[in-house]
Design a protein around this nucleic acid. Structure first.
Length: 114
DNA sequence: AGCCTGACGCCGC
DNA sequence: CGCGGCGCCAGGC
């Protein structure tokens, strides 16, 4: 099944905007939540363009499955992502979220019942 | 159409 | 625990 760019992008934004402050999720989790388990990379692609949109997307709350802050390159500075997370109370050490297990926010658990 | 790349993820070493 | 390989799919050349 082919994926509609706009639809996929919208779905991703919708999920990301639903991420509570002080929490974070992963690309794979988002992809799974919107029904495309194998499209984690596309989620990343979409997030790459998040800066190009007017929607205020908390892109900094999206990291990889290890809780690592990959993607800092799309921010003003690589540390921007880290700073934003820390300002929300998320502890980050060396480009990595501490307590990732606890900080992780599963979109499926929160959105599947909608 | 073929080839390379990428904000990923998992498994092996 | 870091590194590398492979799978994944869409997009740019």
């Amino acid at each position: 099944m082919k994926i509609d760019r706009a639809d996929f992008q919208q779905a991703v934004y919708d999920v990301v905007r639903s991420i509570p402050r002080g929490r974070a999720t992963s690309y794979g989790a988002i992809a799974e939540a919107i029904g495309f388990p194998n499209h984690s990379r596309l989620v990343g692609k979409v997030m790459n363009g998040c800066s190009s949109t007017d929607e205020h997307i908390p892109a900094h709350r999206v990291v990889n499955s290890q809780g690592k802050l990959v993607g800092g390159g799309s921010f003003s500075t690589p540390d921007q992502m880290k700073q934003l997370l820390q300002s929300e109370g998320i502890e980050v050490s060396e480009n990595r979220i501490r307590n990732w297990k606890n900080v992780f926010w599963n979109p499926m658990e929160e959105l599947k019942m909608l």
